[in-house]
Simulated assay, not measured.
Amino acid sequence: MNLFPDSPLQLPDACLDLRPDWLEPATAERWLRQLLAETPWQQPRLRLYGRELTVPRLVAWYGDAGACYRYSGLTHQPLPWTPLLAQIRQRLQAAVGQPLNGVLLNYYRDGNDSMGWHSDDEAELGADPLIASLNLGGSRRFDLRRKGQARIEHSLLLTHGSLLVMAGPTQHYWQHQVAKTRRPCAPRLNLTFRLIRSTP
């Protein structure tokens, strides 16, 4: 099942669609500069396996009133939509054909910032969540592996202005990560829009 019928990306038990040039370069550059400047970034601390760790990136959660999002033991209360984020949401809703009431912004300042292996399978996202991931700034590798396995089965390069949509059973069977890298890379901003179907 694919949202974009001509997508070359086919993985079993998944619905993944990548549009490398979804956003025109001038708009991508303008959105990146404005979002980096106006977002009140946070770097939460979380407890994982008995240890307290600092999240290895900067984050912000925006959404409709009541669209709280809980993951990794943290509950994020939504900031109100800014005019720019409301505009981006409207454009993405038209692209994916469903409402989206929250967005998690992740700011990867350099190659030391990362996102560990996980699935977006929190209960408040519903049975088959759709995650629309807009990428701005530096390119980073996005890895996928089967749940329960250690081997990376597929990797994508997420570039400036690209859109990756994960839907259907993807989160049931697959995990993804953005690993640390020693390669020089420009700062990257990732916006993952989703629909919160119930509050935690």
Rank of each mutant, 00 (worst) to 15 (best):
M115S: 08
D17P: 00
A179M: 03
A60W: 07
R47N: 10
E122Q: 14
R89L: 11
P83W: 13
Q175C: 08
Y49I: 00
D17K: 01
S114F: 01
G111D: 11
A95D: 06
F4W: 15
R183F: 04
E29M: 00
N135A: 14
L85G: 05
G116I: 09
E52L: 04
C185V: 15
D121I: 08
S7K: 07
L189A: 04
L46C: 03
I88G: 01
L79Q: 13
S139I: 09
T170W: 01
R194F: 11
R91F: 00
L46R: 14
A127L: 11
R197H: 07
Y173A: 13
N135C: 15
F142P: 09
T170P: 09
G126W: 04
L3I: 10
G161Y: 01
P8I: 04
H176C: 09
G161N: 09
L46W: 03
L36V: 15
L48A: 07
R57F: 08
G148P: 09
R33I: 01
N106E: 03
L79W: 08
L92K: 03
Q149S: 14
C68D: 14
L18D: 03
N106Q: 00
R109P: 04
V165A: 12
H176P: 11
D113E: 02
L144K: 07
L46M: 09
S155N: 12
A14C: 03
Q93Y: 02
E124F: 02
R145T: 04
S162L: 12
L104A: 07
A127Y: 06
Q98D: 02
R70W: 02
L11W: 11
G148N: 09
S119G: 13
L32I: 00
P25T: 00
W41T: 10
D128L: 15
T181N: 11
H160V: 06
L100E: 03
M115N: 02
M115H: 02
R109C: 07
L74Y: 13
T170S: 14
N2E: 00
M1S: 12
L189Y: 05
N190C: 12
L163S: 13
Q177L: 02
P184W: 12
P200H: 14
R182E: 13
R19M: 10
V178G: 08
L53W: 05
T159L: 03
E122A: 06
D121A: 15
A28P: 08
G73M: 09
S162I: 10
E153Y: 10
L84M: 13
M1E: 05
G111Q: 11
R151M: 11
G63C: 10
N135P: 00
P187E: 13
K147H: 15
P78L: 08
P5K: 02
W61E: 01
A186L: 15
N135H: 15
L158W: 08
S114G: 03
E29T: 02
T199D: 12
G111R: 10
F4S: 11
E124A: 00
Q43V: 07
P80A: 14
A132D: 06
R51W: 02
T181I: 12
G161I: 03
D13M: 12
L32Y: 02
